[in-house]
């Protein structure tokens, strides 16, 4: 880890003023579960670290008639222990429960989950977000891409977005609250993430001097929802593929559907084709499978990860069936 100066502001105004105008000069510290590893591996070498945990306004989980507010500093434990989340937003609850380490659940925050960096092993070894060697050769397409993207990698970013919460938030049409020098703004969860075009960019729609302050999830309004993750181990492990689904149901009939996949693309992947395939139909094993087929119809697996197409299909199917109950 490179030396840095440390500052712990108490308001978001102070925090934002302490950030830089270029990525990488200053990093934001919340739970620390990702940032410390990134710094230890010299993937990021900030000169200043701004700890957000002193900002009380960023904490808390609150449920009301208008919906759910997750403070950016709410920990996974805070989310899991909230009975309203479990009752109304099982898609969120299951995504958080899938982080099977109590230590990570105690430390990890909502904002950190959204802004954590990719786990791509080439990126983590220092070859950059786009994973190129010194000759500019892209390492992922003909390298070991067993855990890489099967969708959305046209831009040259092959990593998968690692967020646990994002697919659920997208399925539930959540908004992400952001604060910066120009004040507060909100971004649809579905628009928050992006595939970077270069190593100096980030995977989310923030300016270097903006921070995530909160996540706002609309009232469930009868939307049945679920998350299904395909994970190999019970021990702390990344899902190989995951899907979150929210359905407006009349009996078994789908009036509206929002479906998002995790760990399959550089961004959490909204599966519009699967939604269309499901709307107007009754949820059955067959219609769920057909929606899953539609979700992955455009998949372009790399040399070693065709199996992830199958896993993603299973995740979509099982999430639909779980949501319908």
């Amino acid at each position: 880890m490179q030396k840095f100066e440390y500052v712990s502001p108490t308001t978001k105004e102070q925090a934002v003023a302490l950030l830089g105008e270029n990525w990488g000069d200053v990093e934001v510290l919340a739970g620390g579960t990702d940032l410390l590893s990134l710094m230890k591996d010299y993937i990021t070498t900030p000169r200043r670290v701004v700890n957000l945990k002193g900002i009380a306004a960023l904490s808390g989980v609150r449920y009301s008639a208008s919906g759910l507010r997750l403070g950016a500093l709410a920990t996974f434990d805070d989310v899991l222990s909230n009975t309203a989340v479990r009752r109304n937003y099982p898609a969120i609850w299951a995504a958080v429960e899938g982080v099977t380490s109590p230590q990570i659940r105690a430390m990890g925050t909502v904002g950190g989950d959204l802004c954590q960096r990719p786990r791509c092993w080439y990126y983590r070894a220092g070859y950059g977000l786009l994973a190129k060697d010194e000759t500019g050769h892209a390492l992922v397409p003909d390298g070991d891409n067993r855990y890489h993207a099967i969708l959305g990698h046209n831009s040259g970013a092959y990593f998968v977005n690692p967020s646990s919460l994002a697919p659920a938030l997208i399925a539930l049409a959540a908004k992400i609250g952001v604060y910066g020098p120009k004040g507060a703004r909100q971004v649809d969860a579905a628009e928050f993430f992006r595939a970077p075009g270069g190593d100096g960019e980030r995977e989310y729609q923030l300016s270097p001097n903006e921070i995530v302050t909160e996540v706002l999830v609309p009232a469930p309004g009868g939307m049945k929802n679920a998350t299904y993750e395909v994970r190999q181990r019970e021990a702390l492990d990344w899902p190989l593929a995951s899907a979150s689904v929210a359905l407006k149901l009349t009996g078994r009939n789908v009036g509206a559907a929002r479906i998002a996949l995790g760990h399959v693309a550089p961004v959490p992947w909204r599966a519009g084709a699967a939604e269309s395939a499901l709307v107007g139909k009754a949820v059955t094993e067959q219609t769920a499978a057909a929606a899953a087929e539609a979700a992955l119809a455009d998949a372009k697996p790399l040399s070693r990860n065709a199996y992830k197409v199958q896993l993603a299909r299973v995740a979509v199917k099982r999430a639909i069936l779980a949501a319908a109950g």
Binding site: M1, Q2, L18, G20, E21, N22, G24, D25, V26, M39, K40, D41, Y42, I43, T44, T45, R47, R48, A125, G126, Y127, G128, E134, G200
Partner: peptide, 27 residues
């Protein structure tokens, strides 16, 4: 602080570190 003692990206023309040095901070 600790670090992996495996080297990071070999011979990388522009490590983030150099990048920082070269451009200076905008704070």
């Amino acid at each position: 602080s600790s670090s992996g003692d495996m080297p990071d990206k070999p011979n990388s023309g522009v490590s983030r570190r150099n990048f920082l040095r070269g451009t200076g901070l905008v704070l």
